[in-house]
Amino acid sequence: MLGFSRSQFIAFLIMVALIVVCPFVLYPVFLMRVLCAALFACAFNLMIGYVGLLSFGHAAYFGMGSYVTAWTMKHWHLDAFLAIGLGGLTGAALGLVLGYLAIRRSGIYFAMITLALAQMVYFFCLEAPFTGGEDGIQQVPRGRMLGFLDLSNDMTMYWVVAAIFIGGFLTIHRIIHSPFGQVLKGIRENEPRATSLGYRTDDYKLIAFVLSCAITGIAGGTKALVFGIATLTDVHYSTSGEVVLITLLGGLGTVFGPAMGALIVTAMENYLAQAGAWVTVIQGAIFMVCVLAFRRGVIGEIANWRKLTL
């Protein structure tokens, strides 16, 4: 169903059920934060899990998406749909340029180049006038979605974010299970062989990168709208690091891992907020335990234990 395996379809239903039920139990704004982080991590997972490239600068696309959505909402009073769409386009356009420069390398070199390019984006955002520098873009109005959904209501906003997340999630799933996705898997498995079959592998990797960045930009734009703010944190390398943590913790290369990881990490940040700087220490400790004891991540371990594909 929907191209899912049986176990994946059941997991998908559970996830959708949780998305529907949770806002009646938990604080919707917290849940929206989880969903934005989850979409971001799913997009990141497309690169690391299915192309085998670790992008260490995904905050650049997240942050630029966030700035563009915030700016166009605040100054042009666009429809939220358009503003988030522009955020996605910004991510894609930036991904095309930076990806073009980085894609010819792999492994640690790819990670370092993407990190370096993302740092350049960070300094651009620090200096450029439209980002508001240290202040960021604040008091961004949520406006309306498609002209009729008033997003100032938290619940309405929540359903929109939920729809964006599920839409993005299914899009990524489709990309992985498309003819294009088959070639991507081939490249991940054995790139020289894919080349010898006549595939220009760089082109495939670049398109996957642009798609990942587009969805990342959408996640960033949605986040800006939810919190009414776009700041330097969004483009900071710690955000790039956090998405790596989320994906590894949830289960790299699994379909549901990134969402699970986003839930765990965001919950920690939220509920351990009183602990202040200790959150980082706890996160670091959990990360070490994860790498040492359960490398497949939460979902990856469950899948391995129950012999399922998740």
Binding site: G3, R174, S178, P179, F180, G181, Q182, A194, G198, D203
Partner: peptide, 25 residues
């Protein structure tokens, strides 16, 4: 099967169609 299909799939030209279902193959 997927191994061989990856080669056959080359005949479609550049298969960048990420929006289509695998069942096309």
């Amino acid at each position: 099967l997927e191994n061989v299909r990856l080669a056959l799939q080359r005949a479609r030209g550049a298969s960048f169609d990420f929006w289509r279902s695998e069942s096309t193959l």
